[in-house]
């Protein structure tokens, strides 16, 4: 798993590649902990290159969202595959997260 961060139009885009699971979650958390420590106000998490998410991965994303909300930060998810989106729907996390259809929609919607 790799996370590439990119600052664009006043917000941070985190492009994730690979799998978000019990093995990769600690490293992902470290990347976001830095952004959260800086109180980054707006983050888009691009999941277009993510092929697999397990319950640890879902938990990691929930943790990031919780930490961002603690200082008023906002986070949006974009680019998830239909399979990964179905996991969000089954667990009702699609109601908790702000999921945008495209990066453009996420940027303009902030």
């Amino acid at each position: 798993m790799a996370v590439k961060t990119e600052s664009k139009d006043g917000l941070m885009i985190c492009r994730m590649e690979g799998e978000i699971d019990i093995s990769s979650s600690p490293d992902i958390k470290k990347v976001f902990d830095k952004l959260i420590a800086q109180k980054t106000p707006k983050i888009i998490v691009d999941l277009v290159s993510v092929s697999y998410v397990d319950s640890s991965g879902l938990a990691t994303l929930v943790g990031i969202l919780k930490n961002m909300r603690s200082y008023g930060g906002k986070m949006k998810l974009v680019g998830m595959s239909s399979k990964i989106k179905s996991l969000f729907e089954i667990t009702k996390l699609d109601k908790l997260f702000d999921i945008a259809a495209s990066e453009e929609e996420a940027i303009t919607g902030f």
């Binding site: 319950s55 938990a59 929930v62 919780k66 089954i90 908790l96």
Partner: peptide, 11 residues
């Protein structure tokens, strides 16, 4: 819903 565990068996 905001918990960071407890979804594995449910899935």
């Amino acid at each position: 819903i905001m918990k960071e565990s407890g979804r594995g068996m449910f899935l």
